[in-house]
Every structure is written in structure tokens, then in C-alpha cells.
Write a protein that binds this DNA or RNA. Structure first.
Lengths: 326, 326
DNA sequence: GACCCTAGCTAAACCGGTTTATCTCCGGCT
DNA sequence: AGCCGGAGATAAACCGGTTTAGCTAGGGTC
């Protein structure tokens, strides 16, 4: 099976290749009569322009890129990213080029390669590091990019984020209002910018707080929880940096015979089916809408808009059965 | 910033474009001396071939495609697909072009477009329908494709699947061995091939069975469960077609005051964190490995291997707290 | 009538590769 | 010496578009 090309249309319509190109792209230089004839021929022939060829003439690649740095196995449990991707898709007419790599170096190399190969019109940057080399890279390459969830402004790039600082503060205030004093936090990866933000907010609003590092896995959540509950003055409330760790923590508490929320209050960051089912109080944000917003921002930048920062609505605390007065 | 092209290398090495192409692709026609000089120049210049340009000359697009037909919102909860995608990625050196569309027609149009645009070297076909038009389409287009989870052989296409029939039979046999007679099934979408397979297996191994249709959502699972439990001779065991519906069903049972597993046994198809946490007996398959296997099959077909069928290992029944004797 | 403009179109170059036809040179064979 | 063959390289065509330079015809100006 052979696809019709611009040449076929030119021949069928009795005009030149150039005229067809002008007509199809709605540009001036051809008469309305010719344009309509070309369009008609194109549609009867079922013509579809080849992005490949078009991209070659330094036009659009009709795709945007997303690189995830993860051990592939771990990815499947992180509903967050899938929600995010689904949301992005909802606002994009173009395709998403997705690749999972296992190191930051590979990620950078891949972005460079995609750029060099004219494969993408722009990219999303997720999991922003404290001083992330990617920000510089994008500027240097001139590759349109949107920082997703990077809490704040980043160089010349557009940014879409939620205020982790305010959110953490509101969680702590909520717990304090219930009478909690000894509040603990099971944090995420320390290299990530939002972890630092949450750390800062936590430190400044909690008087008697302790932070344990985690890595978003159930094992880390369980281990951190055991550690916290074994302390002399054990905390009366724990805030987890994601849902998986929170659920694991809840199970540890149950296995130790601790009543939730009577003896221990639990809050999860990021809501999910897991939290809903486990009846955990969670900081809920609409990840799907967040992804959609990021996609809109990227499309705008690609279309030549000057990069802007979009602050997402503050995550909302959904109170379920896992939090209560001391 | 400007990236080096094959022309720059040719100039720097003092040879022609053609020679550079031959040298870089390890083909004969250039002396070893020239080849090594070209390679050296290329590496010092940081040369990266443009897939775009290469694809134009009807070579590889260095990407494979996957189209999902879903309401985007619903996608985020389906860990299955994300696991699958993660697994695919683990075995592919090329990128995955992912797009979510909302109708079967759009899906077909997209496959055709990707083919016409030389965007992908091959595609995955998921959610196979009973007599799926895509199978014909791929053959007609000559686009390498692998049917994923399509239970059996499909025209000229390679296929990677698990034996749903045998799996369903084993689940039913297990329940029968516990003494269950009235067994119900909450099925998935009737248009999907694997639903039909499971239906057939269920019908032939259960004597006194009843099937209710669902659509994989929690709501459908709850509704179906209520319906089943309201029957005169209510079932003593229910097999759900996915984890989300099973968990919802378990909650309905709990809300009706029915003890699980004493009064009702529950089995979920597809294991997940949700099942683990809800302590549901589940039919577990390694979706990640499944995706990896599918990717290997697609890579092989793209490389010119003749399409083969790969049967995945039988899903394993992980018995947890939700099943027991009548 | 000479001149200039512009609309409307074509031919051709270009993007960055691959591939084919062609050309040159050199060695081996009769 | 004359012929053939093959290795090694180059020029040029090609893929399917975009873009630019250039050509032509028609209309307005003076």
C-alpha cells in the first residue's frame, strides 16, 4: 500500500508541489480557486502530510517528550505519573514520546538526543532536583520546556506547580488544631526540590518534629514507621510523603496494636484509591488536571508564548478516618 | 546552538556525504582507514544522526506506538497499563509513542496516520476485540504489530498472550474444591476478546453460575455485587474481572454485614497493591514481564523475524484472606 | 507606450540523511 | 600491451515536505 504524497496531489490537481504546499497550509500565494481544488483533491486522495518530512524542514515534530528516571519495575505502582500522563494527553493533540531511563545522565543525554534529532517540539521536566542541570540545558538548547511540580520559578522556563510549602503548613496546622505536638514526617527523596520545600515548611511550623527519610516504597514507609514508633517519646501523628508509604505505615501501626487515629494519626500526601480504601486522611490534588495544565503550558510555549508560571490550586486535605484528636 | 550534520563531518574528514553514511553504518564501500577517520571526526564533533531525516529515506523511525482507547480520566486508576508500559520500556531501546484517544475510530485513524507519517516502526495492539478490524489493517498496511493479551493467534500478526481460559478454569476448580457451587462472575467489557474467553471457560466449568457485566470501574463492581447479593439464591463466591471491581465488591459485602470469606468468597483477576492491601485472593500475573515479552516480540518482528505466538505463563492464584470453604 | 506593481504560479534549492550510478585507479591475467 | 574486475570513492538522485527566487500576465500611472 502506498500513501499519496504532495507530488501526487500536485499532479492530480495540475499544479506544482509548491502551490500545493501553500494551499494546504492556508498561506497566501495561491488563488482561492486553486486552493479549493487542491484541498478537494487532497481529501479525495486521503492525503496525510508526513510529519517526518515536515520536521526535516525544521518545522514541527508534532510530539512532546517526557523522560522518567526510575527503576522500571517501581514505576507501575506510582499511579501519580500515570494520572499525570493521562491528564497531559487530554490537552494535547500531538503524541507523547515517553521513555524510562535509569539514571540522570541517561535522561540528560536523551533530552539532548531528542533535540538533536528533531524528535520533539518540547519536553516536560519532572522530579526537579535542587539545582537541576536540566534547566540550564533547555535554555542552552532552546528547547521549549515546562517544569512540572517544581515549586517555583526556574530560569527562563515555564513552570507549573503546587505550593508544597503552604500545603505542608496547612497539614501541620490541622494536626496542631487537633492537639498534636509531637509530629513526625516520613520524607521522600532528599534530592528532589519539593522534598526540600516540604522539609522547610515542616521545620518552621512544627515545634517538636522529627523527619525520617524514605524513598516512596512500601518498605521504606514501614521501616520509617517502625523507627518512629520505637522512639521514647513517640510521635502522635505522622505525615507521609506519598500514599504507598502511608498505607504501609498504617499497617505497621496496626500490627503493633496501635489504634488509628486514637493513638496515632496518619496523613498521606497524594490521594489515591489506596487512601480511599484504607480510609486515610490525605492531601488530595487533582493530578489529572495538573497534567492537563502542564500540557497547556507546554503547548503555549511551543506556540511561541513567553514562558509563564502557573500555580496550581492548593492541594485539599481530605479528612478520613486516620486522623483525630490526641 | 547548531548540531553537526553529515555534511559537516564530510567536510571535516575531507570525504563525501555518501562515504560518511557508508562509514557510519558499517557498510562496505569505504576503506578501513577512511572509516576510522570518519568515526573519529564524528565522535569529536558529537554527531548524532537525525532520525527524522533517516526515516524519510524509508529507514527506521526508532519508535513504536501504543494507542489506548479510554476516557483519559479512567486511565489513571488502571495500574495494569502502566505496569505493561513500564515492562515494554525495559526491553526497548527506542521510544514509545503513546496516545490516548476516545474512540475506536480515532484509534484506527491514528494507526493509519502514524504509518503514513513514518512515525513508528511498529505498534502494540491491546484490548483486542472479538473480530478486531485492526488485525486486518496491520496486514494491509504492512505495519509490524504485536497483539498483546489477545488470547490466541491473529491473522498474520505476532501475539503474546496468557491463557485466560485455563486460568478461569483453575479459579473455578479452586472454588469448587472449597465446596462452592453457586459461583458468580462480574465480567469486563463484553466486546473484548478476553472477556469472551473467560465467559466461555466460566460457563463450561461452573454448573450453577451467573454472570453480570461490568466495565472495570469501582461503581460497576459495587452495583454488580449488590445485584448478585440481592438474589434469592445468592452466590457463595464471586470472581471479578479486575482488582478495582473486586475491592469495591468486598466493600459492598462488608457494608451488608456479610463476612468474607465465611459467607462470601472473593477472587480478583489481576493482582495489585489494592488486592495486597485488601487481602484479596487474586489471580496474579507479572504484567511487567508480560510487557517486556511483548516488546521483545515486537522488536523481533520489526527486525524481520516471522511473527510468532508467545504464550505467557499461566497467571498464578495468590490465595489471601478473601477465599475459604463455604 | 513605457514603466512599475502585484497576484499567482512554477522551478529549484534545501532539510539530512540513504542509495544508486558512475568514475578512477590499480592489480592480475592472457 | 591489452583487457577485465574490483575496491574505493564521488556525484547525484531521492525521500516528502517547505521556502525562496524568478517568471508571467494583467492592471494602474504618468
Amino acid at each position: 500500500m502506498k500513501r499519496p504524497t504532495i507530488k501526487d496531489i500536485a499532479a492530480a490537481a495540475g499544479v506544482s508541489k509548491g502551490a500545493v504546499s501553500l494551499a494546504l497550509n492556508g498561506r497566501s500565494g495561491v488563488s482561492e480557486l486553486t486552493r479549493s481544488r487542491v484541498l478537494e483533491v487532497a481529501s479525495t486522495l486521503g492525503y496525510r502530510p508526513s510529519v517526518t518530512a515536515r520536521a526535516l524542514s525544521s518545522a514541527s515534530a508534532d510530539a512532546v517528550g517526557l523522560v522518567l528516571v526510575r527503576p522500571p519495575r517501581a514505576l507501575g505502582d506510582e499511579a501519580f505519573f500515570f494520572q499525570l500522563i493521562a491528564g497531559m494527553q487530554s490537552e494535547m493533540s500531538c503524541a507523547l514520546l515517553l521513555q524510562v531511563v535509569d539514571s540522570r545522565e541517561a535522561e540528560i543525554a536523551l533530552y539532548q538526543r531528542w533535540w538533536a534529532e528533531h524528535r520533539v517540539d518540547g519536553v516536560f521536566l519532572v522530579d526537579l532536583l535542587v539545582s537541576d542541570p536540566r534547566v540550564e540545558l533547555m535554555s542552552a538548547l532552546g528547547l521549549p520546556a515546562v517544569v512540572v511540580g517544581g515549586a517555583g520559578h526556574h530560569g527562563e522556563l515555564a513552570s507549573v506547580w503546587a505550593d508544597d510549602y503552604a500545603a505542608m503548613t496547612s497539614v501541620v496546622e490541622y494536626l496542631k488544631s487537633l492537639g498534636h505536638q509531637r509530629i513526625a514526617r516520613v520524607a521522600g527523596l532528599a534530592s528532589l526540590l519539593h522534598t526540600v520545600r516540604r522539609d522547610a515548611a515542616f521545620a518552621s511550623s512544627v515545634v517538636d518534629g522529627v523527619v525520617v527519610a524514605g524513598d516512596y516504597t512500601a518498605e521504606a514507609g514501614a521501616r520509617a514507621t517502625r523507627e518512629l514508633l520505637a522512639m521514647d517519646a513517640r510521635p502522635t501523628a505522622i505525615v507521609y510523603d506519598n500514599d504507598v508509604m502511608a498505607v504501609a505505615g498504617a499497617e505497621v501501626a496496626a500490627s503493633l496494636g496501635l489504634a488509628v487515629p486514637a493513638e496515632l494519626s496518619i496523613v498521606a500526601w497524594d490521594d489515591s484509591v489506596l487512601c480511599q480504601h484504607g480510609r486515610l486522611t490525605a492531601l488530595s490534588r487533582d493530578t489529572f488536571a495538573f497534567g492537563a495544565r502542564a500540557a497547556r503550558a507546554l503547548v503555549a510555549v511551543i506556540d511561541g508564548a513567553s514562558p509563564t508560571d502557573v500555580e496550581d490550586v492548593l492541594p485539599e486535605l481530605v479528612v478520613r478516618g486516620s486522623t483525630g484528636p490526641v
